[in-house]
Amino acid sequence: MNNYTDKFLRELLSTTKTIAMVGVSVNEMRPSYFVARYLNLKGYRIVPINPGQAGKTLFGQMIYPSISEIPEEVGPIDMVDIFRRAEHVDQIVDEAITALSARGLRYIWMQIGVINEDAEATAVAAGLDVVMNRCPKIEHQRLFGELRKAGFNTGIISSRL
């Protein structure tokens, strides 16, 4: 598993405001729906990308068919979170760099089980930070106290109130 420091992940999760979620499902028992719902509840703005569901809405946000088709008025996109199999990731990263570099894109996140080192290298060369094989929901829950409620090893040691 790639080792990302808690400091890096905290900064990423604290400064990100808008997340384009590629492959997010509207089925509420799917993991991607879990992640989108959780991040939405925590105050992130979710921009859902799913060609099969385009035109519908998820948590009040319009679903777009592709990254390239996110209208300008949606504004800056800080992060692209990818829920697609690794073989689709190269194309998604290329498209994200082309369409979103001028719109504030800083992070590419690939979900648990999604590992594509070529796409990672492409993103890094374009000046982006990359997280692979992790889940932003789980990392957020771990770093900001929620996983502590259920007995998970958060790695956090602090005597501050």
């Binding site: 879990f34 509840l41 829950q141 996983l147 409620k149 259920a150 007995g151 090893n153 958060t154 790695g155």
Partner: peptide
């Protein structure tokens, strides 16, 4: 209930004191 958010529902499942023990031993 959907496990989309982690928190306390009922002490058969999770409890703040028990959770400290769980995280301590896990660590």
């Amino acid at each position: 209930f959907n496990l989309q958010e982690v928190g306390y529902i009922y002490s058969r499942l999770t409890n703040p004191t028990v959770a400290v023990l769980q995280e301590r031993v896990a660590t």
